[in-house]
């Protein structure tokens, strides 16, 4: 297969970026999208055309959340429930022009080319996305009973890989799906319930502070989430928020 690639190139965070056009040829349809970019980079180096395109990637099996490209108008490209590294070239048509852009959000500034800074997510987690337990001195694991359906729901939310596709997809660059997944995961479990009110407030405040947009319930996040995290988590976040605020003392 042959493709024309339009790739966003940007030297560094401050530089002005632009789209560059590259061609790749004889790509196997079994090739993954990132492997196609590897091939492009090899040829850019070998033919001394340009510095290879920088893009984040790590596990290449869809779990680390490191990769993330905005491909032809969709985060992680034209397939559902996959990360960019799990996207294969057979999903494209031969001769297609592929536009590749970095995640775009104020809270995710571009570092270089297609690499963005997602530490905003870590800051949200640091604001309270955990159970404040230190090592040791905890009760026996089976002393906390958790109903299977609750545990399953918590697990559904906990599957979030923090890739940022929800922010990238959202027309408002809102991080609500990410925040709601973490809030839900912990609020559904008795261990997390204890600090739930405090947690949801701190995480939402941090999210606002970092410059993410607001959720307008468009659900592009849900449509593009590689782990199929549900919008019901956002509703749960809203509920948690209301309960926390209603019960809050001055």
């Amino acid at each position: 297969m042959n493709f024309t690639l339009k790739i966003w190139r940007q030297e560094n965070a401050k530089a002005k970026g632009r789209f560059e056009t590259y061609k790749v040829e004889n790509i196997s349809s079994d090739c993954s999208f990132l492997e196609m970019l590897d091939i492009l980079n090899e040829s850019l180096i070998s033919n001394k055309i340009a510095h290879p395109v920088c893009f984040d990637n790590d596990c290449r099996e869809g779990i680390c959340g490191m990769c993330g490209l905005y491909i032809n108008g969709r985060p992680h490209g034209n397939d559902d429930g996959v990360t960019t590294c799990q996207l294969h070239m057979r999903k494209f048509t031969d001769g297609e022009t592929i536009w590749i852009e970095p995640w775009r959000a104020k809270a995710f500034p571009v570092i270089r080319d297609l690499v963005v800074d997602r530490t905003a997510y870590d800051k949200i987690i640091q604001a309270g996305g955990y159970v404040s337990v230190s090592t040791g001195g905890v009760p026996d694991a089976n002393s906390i009973l958790i109903a299977k359906d609750k545990a399953d729901k918590a697990m559904d939310a906990a599957e979030c890989i923090g890739c940022g596709a929800c922010v990238a997809a959202c027309k408002n660059a809102s991080a609500m799906l990410f925040v709601s997944a973490k809030v839900s995961h912990l609020a559904l479990l008795p261990q997390g319930k204890v600090e739930a009110a405090n947690r949801v407030q701190k995480m939402v405040e941090k999210m606002d502070e970092l410059g993410f947009g607001n959720c307008t319930n468009t659900y592009a996040c849900e449509a593009e989430c590689p782990k199929l995290i549900k919008r019901s988590n956002i509703a749960r976040l809203n509920r948690e928020w209301i309960c926390a605020r209603v019960g809050k003392e001055k």
Binding site: R74, W99, R104, A169, F212, G213, A220
Partner: peptide
């Protein structure tokens, strides 16, 4: 403001 640089390609989500 949350997305100061827009995407080149329109969203297909």
């Amino acid at each position: 403001k949350a997305r100061p640089v827009r995407y080149h390609q329109p969203s297909k989500s």
